[in-house]
Structures are given as C-alpha cells and as structure tokens.
Amino acid sequence: MPGWFWGALLLSPAFLLVAGVIAAPIAYLVRLSFTDAHAYLPRFGSVGFDNYAALLRAPHFWDSVRTTVWYAGLTVGLQLVLGVLIALLLHQRFRGRGVVRLVALAPYMVPSIVVALVWRWLLDPTTGAYSWFIDKVWPGSEPPNLLSPNLIFWSLIAVSVWMFTPFIVISVLARLQTIDPSVVEAATVDGAGAWRRFWHIVLPELKPVLYTLILLRFMFMFTKFDVVYLFAGTGTEVRTLPVLTFQRIFGEARLGSGAAVAMILFVLLMIFTTVYLRTLYREREETA
C-alpha cells in the first residue's frame, strides 16, 4: 500500500468529524439565512435576501454592531495593557512566585457560568461585597447599582477583563522568557533606566506577539457569547451580535433571521482568520 493511502485512512475520522459537525453546518447556515425558518415549527420558506435587508435597515442591528465593537475594543485594549504589566511583574524573581503565577492565571480556567454568578453576587446592590466596598471608598448620596441597565456594560467590561487577561499574561510571559538577559544587562550598564529598557529593548521584542494577540483576542471577544449573555445579556442593554443571534432564535423563534446574523459573524471571522494566518506564515518565514 502506498504511503498516501495510509495517510488518507488515518485522517478520515478527523475529516469526517470536522466535515460533519463544522463544515456541513456552515453550508446549512448559508441556506438557513435565506429562509424564514422557525426555531420550533417545521417552516422553511425561501425569502431571498430579505433577512439581510431587514437587518441592515434595523437600527437595533447597528446598535448591536456598535456595542460589539466597543465591547471587543475596550476589553482587548485593557487586557493588553494589564496583561503586559502583570507579565512584567511575574517575570521578576521573588519568593512565592510560583503560587502568585497560579493565582494570576486562575480566572481563565473558571467556567463562564461560575464567573457570571459569582460576580453578580459580588456586585449585588444590596448585599454584594464589592458594592459595599465601593460605597465605603467612594461614599455618595446613593450607592451605585452596578447591575443596573446603565452601568451593567461597564461591569461586564470589568468582569471580562478579569476573566480573559491571563491569556495575555501567559503569552507575553512566555515571550519575555526568551529575551536574552545579557542584552538587557548591557543596556543597564550603559545607563539605560527601567523605562528606556522597556521601550527600546523589551517592547520591540514583544511586538510580534502583541500584534498576534490583538488580532486573536479581538476575534474571540467579538464573537464571545457565554459570559456576555450570562452576566449581562438577557435584556437589551448589552446586546452584542452573538447575543442578538441567540435572542433572535431562542427568544423570538426566528431561526432564519438569527442565521443571517450568524452569517455576518462568520464572514467577519473568515476575514480575521485570513489576516491572522498571513501574519503567522510571514512570522514563520522570517524566523525560519
């Protein structure tokens, strides 16, 4: 038997699984988005581009787009700044560093439902520990309700940054460990201060990984569903595109219309991924 036969044979289960549960659904999604399919009833009539046209005309769709861009942009920006700072901190040598690293990374491992519930409990306006704390530090006439419709978006930003920053920390930390310490020491001997060493030596080394992280994290935050929905997404205050998709289908039973929103997310993902893969291959060629 030729080698390629064995290769194809070994690959076929993986191929079938990915084709069956990822590729085929995408094809079906395209079809769904051109129908008036109902989420629970057997209705499946073709409507052409009506779903898309209705979406582009609906003001709340554009609200959703704005919310999603703000959510992804703000959380990625904050994660990046905090992530680099924490990575620099954890790169220092000190006693108990191993334990501190574990604590620094732990939030990323927690299931979204647990994060959402614990934070809703912490921020509860009447009995929450954090609400009490904020009221003490910042005594106002009225303690703020951090779960109210006008503040929940900002609470969600804080919770998301808390949960997802460890990803940046661990990626940046891994890169920091590959920087040659003698270069940094030489700069110190030459009289470069901490800030200049960071700006001229460390940051240029981190640039490629930061660029990749911005792309990847923006893509992930843009399509993030679980924590957004569970912490803040059951109403209309924080309706990002993934939440809109879910509400359309399981709240309003409009499977076809929801599929159109999902299609828009899918196309955006494809564009992001293509850009990401280009930079990945370019980096590989440069390092190879």
Binding site: P25, L32, T223, K224, A262, L265
Partner: peptide, 8 residues
C-alpha cells in the same frame, strides 16, 4: 466561534 456553529 461556537455561536456561529450552534445555529445550524
């Protein structure tokens, strides 16, 4: 993203 796959 899971949200894209779960619909179809």
């Amino acid at each position: 993203a899971p949200i894209v796959i779960v619909v179809p």
